[in-house]
């Protein structure tokens, strides 16, 4: 099994505050790899650091090429799709415009996206800001799936969604993962169990554990110690996500 993404000694900061401290891990080129950890340990910042959305140091290698010196748009152009925390759809643009902006290649995978999220086809002309949270999440995921990426970075795709929608989004990611590897930050451990093959556990801005996702979550003691929760309960959070 080879790796698609190699992160070596990456630190990241927001303003003058360091939020990720020298993390190192690799992401295999197939399947879904979960990033786990308590709230505020730097999971979101790790993804943002890889993308260059926040200041970062250290080595990041995508398919054998260094990307840590590149600006965000160039990294994305090399085949990295990003589904941000809190969706970040453009509220004053229509669904169609949101999707059109994300299209980078001559023949975007519109049919695939339409097949995954038929809802969005119906709501093409609607302002994205007027969609429900679940529909916004679909737009956000769809933006990443329109292109043939080499890697997807997906940040808390099921946060705050109704169970039925969680299921739909998880299904879409599962289907997408057959063709593209995904690095997934997810608090809903049920979803992690369903989707992820490997897992990386971050604590205090560092990687403290890595291994098979189901094994980690199956070990109650380890789960409690590293994630601060029971294996079957969603992480409780103190309302202050990622405020490093």
């Amino acid at each position: 099994m080879s790796t698609i993404l190699e992160v070596a000694g990456m630190s990241a900061s927001i303003g003058s505050q360091q939020v990720v401290e020298s993390v190192s891990f690799s992401v295999p080129d197939t399947g879904i790899t979960a990033v786990l950890g308590r709230n505020g340990v730097g999971k979101t910042s790790t993804l943002r650091g890889i993308l260059g959305l926040i200041k970062r140091k250290g080595e990041v290698t995508l398919a054998g090429e260094r990307i840590d010196g590149l600006p965000t748009h160039r990294i994305v152009q090399r085949g990295v799709g990003y589904v941000p925390e809190d969706r970040e759809v453009f509220a004053s643009l229509t669904v169609a415009e949101n999707l059109a902006l994300a299209e980078r290649q001559a023949n975007p995978r519109r049919d695939f996206v339409a097949h995954l999220f038929p809802d969005l086809v119906e709501r093409r002309a609607q302002m994205a800001g007027t969609l429900s949270g679940g529909q916004q999440q679909m737009v956000s995921v769809a933006r990443a799936l329109l292109n043939d990426n080499r890697l997807l970075l997906v940040d808390e795709p099921t946060k705050g969604l109704a169970p039925r929608i969680v299921n739909e989004v998880a299904g879409a990611l599962e289907e997408a993962s057959r063709t593209v590897p995904i690095l997934l930050v997810e608090q809903n451990l049920e979803v992690v169990k369903r989707l992820a093959k490997d897992a990386i556990v971050i604590d205090g801005g560092r990687v403290v554990h890595r291994g098979d996702a189901r094994e980690i979550l199956g070990d109650e003691e380890l789960t409690r110690r590293l994630l601060g929760v029971h294996g079957d309960a969603p992480a409780d959070g103190h309302g202050t996500e990622e405020r490093a």
């Binding site: 927001i14 303003g15 003058s16 943002r48 925390e85 970040e88 309302g239 405020r243």
Partner: peptide, 17 residues
């Protein structure tokens, strides 16, 4: 420092409770 402030203010989803 001022600039950093401004940047953070622009990214509501990231660092504000």
């Amino acid at each position: 420092e001022l600039d950093d402030d401004a940047d953070e203010a622009q990214r509501p989803s990231e660092v504000r409770p």
